[in-house]
Design a protein around this nucleic acid. Sequence first.
DNA 1: TCTGATTTAGAACGCCTATTCTGAATGTGC
DNA 2: GCACATTCAGAATAGGCGTTCTAAATCAGA
Lengths: 222, 222
Amino acid sequence: MTSHAEILLSEPTLIAPVNAAKELFWRKGYDETSIEDVVCATGMNRYALYNAFGGKLELFLAVLESYFIERKNLFLTALSDPQGGPIAAIREVSEYCITEMTDRGAGCLMCDVAAEVGRYDKAVSERVLSYLEEIRSADEMALAQAEKCGDLNSAISPKEGAALLIANMLGVGAMARNGAGRQELLTVFNSCLRLLSRQSGAQNLEHRRRNPKTTTVKQVQN
Amino acid sequence: MTSHAEILLSEPTLIAPVNAAKELFWRKGYDETSIEDVVCATGMNRYALYNAFGGKLELFLAVLESYFIERKNLFLTALSDPQGGPIAAIREVSEYCITEMTDRGAGCLMCDVAAEVGRYDKAVSERVLSYLEEIRSADEMALAQAEKCGDLNSAISPKEGAALLIANMLGVGAMARNGAGRQELLTVFNSCLRLLSRQSGAQNLEHRRRNPKTTTVKQVQN
DNA sequence: TCTGATTTAGAACGCCTATTCTGAATGTGC
DNA sequence: GCACATTCAGAATAGGCGTTCTAAATCAGA
């Protein structure tokens, strides 16, 4: 069951245009990105663009699928064979995502921009939920590994923890879209990960010692 | 320093129109809500509408300010004098917000719809961040109370915990916008609150006993 | 180089929406 | 009841956008 979007993505010459369009949609949103913008950014002829994709919506669907595949690969490769342990792998992947967000002053393309399109097209929001479920499931497997190693907070199951991580990431995205800084987002994410990790007095003390009065460490941004 | 929007809100005859417009913007977003929609929903004359507010953007700013005031009151009254303790107050307020979201299939008006407008108008996104900071600060005070009672997980400070709650709520909103169900959202929120609460073996055992294999409780929605 | 197909750039079209305009309807003070 | 201001409904305007059309330019093959 390969979708129209997936067929488009198998065409090598379309990879660059899709990536350029992705960048636009991600930064500006769906409505605010005009075909004119896409024509300029891709360098592709308007006529050729319509020939290749069909229209703006179909182009966005291709972009979405491409983003999804990319993101899925990122998560699966990092989480399936984590050298530094599953928690470290989650941190690594998530911090990468946060960087992507703050670089663009945007949230998650899949969730935020797609939610815009989901108003027209129910299939899009269903696709988004299935994507979230896949990522959540990958997180869950990582947390299950962590549980085996005794690295997971026993107050929570891998399944719940994974859902919490997803929500946290989406929340961080919403903050990014409204202009929150990288350091603030990292602090939020790290709090979440800390609570998910096995609680120990030593660990807590360690954290409190490093962050007296828990003021945020000021750091030069970008 | 009273803004134009605040002056508008002090006019009693404009309260109903603002609320009707709020409902529209919340459910449909800014771009997708036309002035025609507003005219129909408010029953207000188009000419009168422009006379009263100035234009679509100004109308939205008034809606935003109204939402902000409402939400702030909700949080401040619930959290400033919590009968069942601060954690319970946070739960109550948050579950109310989740209901608002799922009723509309939307997230947070302030963050999600305003982020759309924030692309045109930098002042809007700054307003959003200041709103988030006010709510976060209210949460922080509640968590500080909880800390005094020994109800806060010692691994986290009230400040960090408050930021985490905000991000969690925004994430839950993003899920709601994409069609996630009420029960799923409540589960995510409750996981977050559980981790924020003081950890005790008894408490964890209690949770695990109630939720064997931590399957989500199926419940009729809406 | 010539011919026929393909690709290009950009004009043209049709639709939608925010905003303004206009003449009719309604209200107000006397 | 009358003069006048206000309010109304809906038409008109202006601009933007996705999409399609067209005539010129380019390319491919012999």
